[in-house]
């Protein structure tokens, strides 16, 4: 059985051929606000590094940009949050199982955190139960986390409930951390909004949306059923006309509502339709998060 972390690393390596891999590291490193003032050493500048970290004197001496590296005073914690209900076993807009995309996103962020020397923890679960994997470092720990998610998600898993996971974090996690929330296109309700408001005060939050399969229009799968209740959906009735129009309006309304709530709380969001989308989307997410500050 191939390691899930290896799979993530492979993808990141391929991505690195198009953009400098270190760029991702640079982006990730800039996510944290709190940095120690203990100067460690100098290294070459990579795009994505904070401009204010550039050691201009050293740069002038060497002739190429150098940035100062600081030793972290305390270990950061990256809290991965994922819904492992059966919604995640469904198909994404790109036609892949949403679970693959979730695993990729969690893996990339977890691996970046690992390389950054941070600890990674996981809160996952469905409507019936939530569980926590306590923060620890190392690739083996990341592998465990990914495997936990991989095993939990399935068509026979419990119903999805992201609100329960948010509430679980609010209840149990005391330490300030970087929260990476992987969600799908579930409607963000009032309860979610207030929980997020409460969590955003404590944590740094990144929101990653795995977009669900289209149910109307030409891109919709011909035969589909809802994982929530097993009911068949007749997408062929919604290829066009009034239904497709109503559907489009409803989806639009939901995503704009989500965006409004998240933006209001200063949470940056990115979305992916397929595994291929994950790295560029994450890159954009980190970039925007840095800019948003």
């Amino acid at each position: 059985m191939t390691s899930l972390v290896t799979k993530v690393k492979t993808k990141m390596f391929i991505f690195a051929h198009r953009r400098a891999r270190t760029m991702l590291d640079g982006e990730f490193g800039s996510v944290f606000r709190g940095r120690s003032l203990d100067f460690d050493d100098l290294r070459a500048y990579v795009p994505g590094d904070e401009v204010r970290d550039i050691d201009w004197k050293a740069t002038a001496r060497v002739g190429s940009p150098l940035v100062k590296r600081y030793a972290a005073v305390r270990k950061q914690t990256v809290l991965l949050l994922a819904d492992t209900g059966r919604n995640m076993a469904a198909v994404s807009r790109g036609g892949e199982p949403k679970k693959e995309i979730v695993l990729m996103a969690l893996g990339v962020v977890g691996y970046l955190a690992h390389r950054h020397g941070d600890q990674v923890s996981l809160v996952s679960g469905d409507a019936s139960s939530s569980e926590t994997v306590p923060p620890r470092g190392g690739e083996g720990h990341l592998e465990l986390i990914l495997r936990r998610v991989d095993d939990a998600v399935g068509l026979d898993a419990g119903p999805s409930d992201l609100t329960a996971q948010l509430a679980h974090v609010a209840r149990t996690v005391a330490r300030r951390s970087l929260m990476f929330i992987v969600a799908d296109e579930a409607a963000v309700g009032e309860e979610d909004a207030s929980l997020l408001r409460r969590l955003a005060a404590q944590h740094e939050i990144l929101w990653f949306t795995v977009r669900d399969a289209e149910l109307a229009g030409a891109a919709a799968p011909r035969r589909s059923y809802d994982v929530a209740d097993g009911g068949y959906l007749l997408s062929l009735l919604a290829e066009g006309g009034e239904v497709a129009e109503d559907y489009r309006r409803l989806v639009e309304e939901r995503s704009s509502r989500r965006a409004r709530i998240l933006t209001g709380l200063g949470i940056v969001e990115a979305h992916a339709d397929s595994v291929e989308d994950v790295l560029p989307a994450l890159f954009r997410l980190l970039e925007r998060h840095r800019r948003a500050r």
Binding site: L215, L233, Y247, V251
Partner: peptide, 20 residues
Amino acid sequence: AVPVAHGDRLASLPSYQRLV
């Protein structure tokens, strides 16, 4: 048949229910 999530996006539409 493909499993999809949040079927209510379509199933809750009155126009869809009429067609069904």
